[in-house]
Amino acid sequence: MGVRTWLGEWPMFRQATGSDPLGRGAAVQSPRTRALEPRTREADEVVKSVCPYCAVGCGQNIYVRDGRVTQIEGDPDSPISRGRLCPKGSASTSLVTSPTRVTTVKYRRPYGTEWEDLDLDTALDMIADRVLDARRRGWQDTDDQGRVLRRTLGFSSLGGATLDNEENYLIKKLFMALGAIQVENQARI
């Protein structure tokens, strides 16, 4: 290693002589940090999305590698957000990759003291049975004045503001066909 090369690797020298007098960029890079690349560069694809928190609707770019989300950034194309995200939107990578996320069905039997595991299909079948039973028990054909009601008060639903329009549509459609009027969401809260 010649003296010049040795000197050239010295950050103070580079800071004093190069284009980075404040020592906030190239001047302070080591061979290791110079070789670092943002994980966004290694993404297999960038998928267009929208932030899931408040209702401003900021654009998000979802960076995906090997079928997993590696990073979420603001979408500069969005005329709403112009690439910006707030602390929550900026934290959404950790929302979708959270280690405490529950990914299997949990079941608590009546009077039970602990969670148990349950197969998803079994759970769906049990829920369908319970819906039909509660629907029957809460059914009202008419009221005491003889007015047609054709409804059930046996069960209800709460939630929708965090869901997609298409999902809200299926919830409302199914509940109306069941005769279940008690459908509510955060808009009332």
């Binding site: 209702a55 929708g160 329009n165 409302k172 955060q186 808009a187």
Partner: peptide, 17 residues
């Protein structure tokens, strides 16, 4: 200024009684 990502949508296509 509404507070959830699609609270407007869930009012338009209402999960409301």
């Amino acid at each position: 200024l509404r507070g959830h990502a699609s609270i407007q949508g869930s009012t338009d296509i209402p999960t409301l009684y």
